[in-house]
Amino acid sequence: MKVAFGCDPNATELKNLLMKEAEDLGYEVVDFPSDDPIYANVAIRVATSVANGEEDRGILLCGTGIGVSIAANKVPGAYCACVSDVYQAQRATLSNNANLISMGAQVVGPETAKVLMKEYLERTFDPNSRSKPKIDRICEYEQGRA
């Protein structure tokens, strides 16, 4: 699996730590470096790349995880969940088929962030699950089929 990573300057240290952890877990890592304090710029670049299928998943980081999540979710085909606990990280994929997650470097510590990333990346969405009609509805709306 190929995983894209991006962050604002508040989260560079955490991003570097998570990229190393992902490599150690056997994932291919793609870094979207940025010194830009406008977190939306890197979030949009990462989300666009994931939505276009250039990477399988994405991890976005900023101070809270909220800003990059909002920006990423403006990209058609990008579905980013802001996570801060294990259950959210697991359900981001299992219930919501999220292709990106975001975390806050000022919200979760480095060890927690590693666990959240691992839990997210280890899961796959079951297209036969009871969540499928819910995901389909989101995609229909996004595609203009109200």
Score class of each variant (00 low, 15 high):
residue 38 I to G: 10
residue 62 C to A: 02
residue 142 E to L: 11
residue 94 L to T: 12
residue 137 R to K: 06
residue 26 G to L: 06
residue 104 G to P: 00
residue 128 N to H: 08
residue 98 A to F: 00
residue 97 N to W: 00
residue 22 A to N: 09
residue 66 I to Q: 11
residue 67 G to V: 09
residue 81 A to V: 11
residue 35 D to H: 13
residue 49 S to E: 14
residue 41 N to Y: 15
residue 39 Y to T: 12
residue 143 Q to Y: 00
residue 59 I to W: 00
residue 143 Q to N: 14
residue 94 L to N: 08
residue 142 E to I: 09
residue 110 P to K: 15
residue 15 K to I: 00
residue 49 S to D: 15
residue 138 I to D: 00
residue 18 L to H: 08
residue 31 D to Q: 11
residue 83 V to A: 01
residue 17 L to A: 03
residue 9 P to E: 03
residue 132 K to F: 01
residue 53 G to N: 12
residue 141 Y to V: 14
residue 136 D to T: 07
residue 86 V to H: 09
residue 107 V to K: 07
residue 122 E to M: 13
residue 73 N to F: 05
residue 104 G to D: 00
residue 24 D to F: 03
residue 99 N to T: 02
residue 131 S to R: 01
residue 121 L to Q: 03
residue 135 I to A: 04
residue 72 A to M: 01
residue 94 L to E: 14
residue 52 N to V: 00
residue 11 A to I: 07
residue 140 E to K: 10
residue 36 D to I: 01
residue 142 E to S: 09
residue 118 K to I: 02
residue 102 S to K: 02
residue 78 A to Q: 06
residue 50 V to Y: 12
residue 48 T to L: 10
residue 100 L to G: 05
residue 58 G to H: 10
residue 110 P to S: 12
residue 140 E to C: 05
residue 25 L to Q: 10
residue 42 V to P: 03
residue 61 L to A: 05
residue 78 A to S: 13
residue 63 G to T: 05
